[in-house]
């Protein structure tokens, strides 16, 4: 219980630190002064001064910081500096489900695929299947996601869209799940496959290496001496230990993708997700939106780290010291 509280406290400190850093960097950036942009071209000094006063840009930075945090978390009415009156918090909350759907689906695909490839390769190491699959995974790993996405679009949206094979592909964009579950699935299937491809390749290689390293361990010899089948040995013993490295990698990758790292996939498939939003905020130097998206993604990294720790506890009883007396 105490460790949970400690974790929450740590996470909160990380978020506060990141918000301060983002805020400070913004004001240290040359040309970031939002007053001119809000006022528009050729505004008179009087108007500039009024805007500066209205938005509070003439106050001390700590005061500005605290006001922004208050608007972001308490009042939740922080508005964009660029789009007049556009509220930032609902914007992030509208983009989050798109990104969560995209990353969640892709994660399921890449974990399933990489476990399959990793286990098959480790069962018959250095055989023909192993070589072909490992070659394939390097290929997947090294194809840039935006290129693959564009090629997929070229094939399924224009050139062969009217053939039997791809007539099911909807136009680019996102269909909310509640509006049409099948539409949601169809709009996301290709983005899922594209996003998961490079991760599937990487994870398959990592898992194969972990399984191969485990195969020399004493507990694997014991498993063989028990008369278990190779598949049982691999799944119940090898994989059971190799999960540990896999889980920490997975937690961090998923967190950064949900936090906006899926930008390229979102842009290529015209999905209005968090990555898209972050990208827009950065090109416009729109502090409220930058603040909201950065804190949102930092929160996911903190949450994912905490979850990874919990999963570790579930997977490895050796870490659970103190919970039971041995």
């Amino acid at each position: 219980m105490r460790s949970v509280a400690l974790r929450l406290g740590q996470g909160a400190c990380v978020l506060v630190g990141i918000s301060m850093l983002v805020f400070a960097v913004f004001f240290a950036t040359p040309g970031a002064d939002p007053t001119a942009r809000i006022a528009g071209r050729g505004a008179s000094p009087q108007i500039l001064a009024r805007i500066r006063h209205d938005y509070g840009f003439d106050r001390a930075l700590p005061v500005q910081y605290i006001r922004m945090m208050d608007k972001l978390f308490v009042a939740r009415d922080l508005t964009s500096f660029v789009d007049h009156g556009e509220r930032v918090v609902p914007e992030v909350f509208a983009a989050a489900p798109v990104t969560l759907s995209l990353v969640g689906g892709a994660a399921i695909i890449w974990v399933g695929l990489s476990v399959l490839i990793g286990v098959v390769c480790a069962l018959w190491p250095n055989g023909i299947v192993d070589r072909v699959l490992m070659g394939l995974s390097v290929l997947l790993l090294s194809i840039p996601v935006f290129w693959l996405g564009e090629v997929v679009n070229l094939v399924t949206q224009s050139r062969y869209h009217d053939t039997m094979l791809f007539s099911w592909v909807p136009p680019l964009g996102y269909v909310p799940f509640l509006q049409s579950p099948s539409g949601w699935f169809r709009s996301l299937l290709l983005p899922w496959l594209v996003l998961s491809s490079s991760f599937a390749g990487l994870y398959a290689r990592v898992l194969r290496a972990e399984l191969m390293a485990a195969s020399g361990e004493d507990y694997m010899r014991t498993a063989r001496a028990k008369g278990l089948s190779p598949l049982r040995i691999m799944l119940n013993h090898g994989l059971r230990m190799s999960w540990l490295g896999f889980v920490s990698l997975f937690g961090l990758d998923v967190a950064q993708l949900i936090g906006g790292g899926a930008l390229l996939t979102e842009v290529v498939f015209a999905l209005p997700g968090v990555g898209h939003l972050t990208y827009r905020a950065l090109t416009d130097l729109d502090l409220p939106l930058i603040m909201a998206t950065v804190l949102y993604s930092a929160a996911f990294v903190v949450i994912a780290n905490a979850l990874v720790d919990l999963v570790y506890l579930a997977l490895d009883p050796r870490l659970r010291t103190g919970t039971r007396h041995g």
Partner: peptide, 13 residues
Amino acid sequence: FQDPMSAFLPVRS
């Protein structure tokens, strides 16, 4: 085996 610590899988009872 010689070392029962490493011969058992550490993550299962």
